[in-house]
Write a protein that binds this DNA or RNA. Structure first.
Lengths: 187, 187
DNA sequence: TGGCGTAAGTATATGACGTACGCTTACCTC
DNA sequence: GAGGTAAGCGTACGTCATATACTTACGCCA
């Protein structure tokens, strides 16, 4: 019952993401997002609780962008694919990405990604505690790298340099987890 | 000549840091900082160019908090001390710290810290290019860890767990740079 | 002694922002 | 159609950063 909806929560989040991508995070105002949807700012409040809720939703939307890696692949490849997907997401949405590091990350999508990483680590032979620890460190390093890159902390460096940096980061992570690595994070 | 100053740029930054520590980054408004100093908001503009300049100053102030490690110490210890100091700074000022990852970090203090790390890495035997690369990865990992911890991304974990995580991070970094480490970031 | 220049702080105003509250609109079900 | 109800709107308020112009309080020079 009631009047038919012109907008929806996903539409609000999509519009907000567009605004952020085009004009930066500061340009994400209730009025700007509403204008893009052809409604008034107050109309958004039927679909998001507050501006903070909208920003949380943006983070969630970002994490939904990349699919989980094929579970048939070996663990190391799954880790690399996930990390690369995260980095690519940061590249597509540099303005929004830093929010990932500031917010609790206890949403459904965040859990989905984390569980995938945990599964890969357990497959690599780590017990629950060590896998949890490794996941924390790995996601911190990857998020930190992606956020730094998105924020332009490496901005004066060419793309190839940053790609090489990231490869090394993946190598170190892999070597650290791999049972064959001599100085691993497994002891 | 002119009227004697009641406030100064350092005083403004100190007041802003207090506000941030006590009530969070969002509470750092020109009015709140000014009120703490007993002046009007506009008086601050004699000492900071804009609110952004004030926030940049906050980051700078944070980096000034810890002294450079004793140059007589071995490189590995210097790295660990710097990383630990950065982490401690994040612990003291969790609200401000995330700014470090969002801002260019091309200020004097940021350069001072970076140059210290670079010197340690060159002492470890890395050439200029590899040292620069290692510095980027190391500072990203350390900043990322400290920021995550400050933002509460590991919040539900006990202090000892986080301390142990950080130790492992330092170990991995050390092993990666050390000439003796088998899978190092030096090749 | 007194005015002048000048830098510090104030007063006031503006426009953008987030959001509370109450109203209108447009659909659904009887 | 009449009523219920959810969606979107109009209006209003308080807060924010900041521009502009004013006032205050000092050192200097006559």
């Amino acid at each position: 019952m009631g009047r038919p909806a012109q907008i929806s929560r996903p539409a609000v989040l999509a519009a907000a993401l567009e605004v952020a991508d085009e004009h930066g995070l500061d340009a994400v105002t209730m009025q700007a997002v509403a204008a893009r949807l052809g409604v008034t700012a107050m109309a958004l409040y039927r679909h998001v609780r507050s501006k903070d809720d909208l920003l949380d939703g943006l983070v969630e939307a970002l994490l939904t962008e990349f699919p989980p890696p094929d579970p048939g692949l070996p663990w190391r490849e799954r880790l690399a694919l996930t990390a690369t997907a995260v980095r690519a997401s940061a590249g597509r949405h540099p303005a929004v990405f830093p929010l990932l590091l500031r917010r609790p990350a206890e949403t459904d999508q965040a859990r989905r990604v984390r569980d995938g990483v945990l599964a890969a680590l357990r497959e690599a032979g780590l017990d629950d505690e060590r896998a949890a620890r490794a996941e924390r460190l790995i996601s911190t390093a990857v998020l930190g790298y992606a956020a730094s890159e998105a924020a332009g902390r490496f901005g004066h460096h060419a793309r190839e340099v940053r790609d090489a940096d990231f490869e090394i980061l993946l190598d170190v992570i892999g070597a650290c987890v791999d049972p064959g690595g001599s100085r691993s994070c497994r002891e």
